[in-house]
Design a binder for these strands. Structure first.
Lengths: 139, 139
DNA sequence: CAGGATGTAACCCCATCTGTTACGATATGA
DNA sequence: TCATATCGTAACAGATGGGGTTACATCCTG
């Protein structure tokens, strides 16, 4: 299904960038993701706005992670990316005013809210350092 | 966002059909959803295969609900529709073998699994009768 | 000032959902 | 028998969104 693959790709590349701890160009990062530099700039734009990475132009420029892996949770990144691919808010609007339609929408929204909250809590409980550690011990 | 509006629409129309308790043609149902009869047949095909509704051809034919609202949970309908719009399994496949990518995928899959399980439990705990009752008391 | 890098717009390709038309299959009833 | 109503389904167009590519302006380094 995989409607949106940005979130895992950003996490993956962000950990590598932090571990190397040096400026990396979009072209370098694009090679790691097997894609195009423009795709990288688009994916990371939100992280720059959120203060997780910084960019510099000109020769020797590129992207650098400015927070430690301990200081970045999945929730932080998720929010900085405008919650990619989140799948809530399916509501019917065929008959505004129909009480049955409204009750369906409320019932589904209740579940969506609970599920989204749980997801965010679990995202907030996981740092990129946790994932980096899991990767190191697994290899 | 609203990637898939089928689930609420099917629930909405299913409750109305059960309350009327008579055969309704695709054209009639389409009017309720402000759409096309073919869209209705597509949306309800899974429910027929799942045994929640039956169809009959020819004049006077159409769709009829064959289970009581008490006997249909959101989970039943969700499964019969092949889980429309479910948003799990976002995994990166840029570097198979990269332990960081694998750790990211595992961490996200853990959350997805927990969240999906919670959603299904809550769907299973809600019957269409619950929603119909909520609609009646609200109006 | 030349070259390398980001920022971003403008496309294309692809998948999915929605809506529409068309047509075959089938059941009803005169 | 046969016209008609209805489902079942294929085929296609439109809208939306992610992903990829090209092009170009902007900016910084040396």
């Amino acid at each position: 299904m995989n409607r949106d693959g940005r979130f895992p790709r950003v996490l993956h590349v962000l950990i590598h960038m932090a571990l190397r701890d040096r400026v990396m160009s979009s072209a370098e990062i694009a090679q790691m993701l097997r894609t195009n530099p423009v795709v990288v700039r688009r994916m990371l734009a939100g992280l720059r706005d959120g203060g997780f990475v910084e960019t510099s132009k000109g020769p020797g420029g590129g992207w650098r992670v400015v927070k430690s892996l301990n200081a970045m949770t999945l929730r932080d990144i998720f929010d900085a990316m405008d919650r990619p691919g989140i799948n809530v808010g399916q509501t019917a609007k065929d008959h505004p005013g129909c009480p049955v339609e409204a009750a369906v929408n409320i019932a589904l929204a209740d579940v969506d809210d609970a599920v989204t909250e749980m997801m965010l809590i679990r995202y907030a409980a996981t740092t990129l350092a946790d994932i980096a550690h899991a990767a190191k011990t697994a290899s």
